[in-house]
């Protein structure tokens, strides 16, 4: 069974940190991700660095640049994923800009990612209308699909996206690119209730989340998962030369978010 399916069958809530693969270097990145696993996160969302990440804010752009400057490419990412998979059995979702898959050759790319231990792929810039081949290749390699649901997604379309999201639906909390925000909009909480009525698909919220109180509020409103990205990446950026320091801070943040899940 797909590991995401299994995860959400077994538990109602999951906390998922986001990392850019290879940031700031492949070795340090691996150490940081292992530390996150040790802190008890329930799944991982991993980004493959791309030169021009148009859906990401400055924090994740800078993160991708650090990784690219450290020589990270598709092959290095596969190697990192395989090492993470050896270390843990928690689900791994990939966040990809489509050109990286396309340029690798789609037939090869999906197979390689699946073989390395990936469980689901979100292709950020492949909307449903362009995703026939993406869908087919995901199925062929037993990979789960993740689609974005944004504040301007109409309800009829949300219904479709929820149906196609076989791993989980990624509910974007607010307009705009990735980045830390102080408040989760009230409308996001309402959207969760709407989506819940439409389908049983696990709902994972991302974009702008940075503290356990927000994670708790999202779970209370019906979310099944929460992703923290930029807040973690900021810690890496601040302590990229003292990775143990970054590790400690990230473990603290993840620990406090995992606690929300455990203690409820």
């Amino acid at each position: 069974m797909n590991r995401f399916k299994q995860l959400f069958n077994e538990q109602q809530h999951a906390f998922i940190p986001f990392f850019t693969l290879g940031d700031p270097t492949p070795a340090k990145s691996l150490a940081l991700i292992k530390a996150a696993v040790d802190a008890g996160c329930h799944a991982l969302e991993l980004g493959m660095p791309f030169s021009d990440p148009i859906a990401d804010g400055p924090v994740i752009q800078a993160s991708a640049k650090r990784a690219l400057d450290a020589g990270v490419d598709f092959t290095v990412c596969l190697d990192l994923i395989a090492q993470i998979r050896q270390y843990t059995q928690i689900p791994i979702g990939m966040l990809m800009y489509y050109n990286l898959l396309f340029h690798r050759g789609v037939e090869v790319a999906y197979r390689e990612l699946a073989a390395a231990g990936v469980d689901a792929i979100l292709a950020v810039d492949v909307p449903l209308e362009e995703s026939a081949q993406h869908q087919q290749l995901l199925q062929q390699h037993d990979l789960g699909a993740i689609y974005l649901l944004t504040p301007n997604t109409p309800e009829s379309r949300a219904q479709q996206l929820l149906t196609y999201s076989t791993a989980f639906a990624y509910v974007v909390s607010d307009y705009g690119t990735t980045g830390v925000r102080d408040v989760i909009p009230q409308t996001t909480l309402q959207r969760l209730q709407t989506y819940r009525k439409l389908a049983d698909t696990p709902l994972v919220v991302g974009f702008g989340i940075n503290k356990p109180e927000q994670v708790q509020a999202l779970f209370n409103a019906g979310a099944n998962g929460a992703i923290i990205g930029s807040a973690i990446i900021k810690m890496i950026a601040a302590d990229q030369h003292d990775i143990t320091q970054a590790q400690t801070k990230i473990q603290e943040l993840i620990g406090s978010c995992v606690e929300v899940v455990v203690t409820e």
Binding site: D125, P127, E130, Y147, L148, T153, V172
Partner: peptide, 12 residues
């Protein structure tokens, strides 16, 4: 050609 954009741009 085509329209390869993040979900938030599909509707606009």
């Amino acid at each position: 050609g085509g329209s390869f954009v993040p979900e938030s741009l599909v509707q606009p």
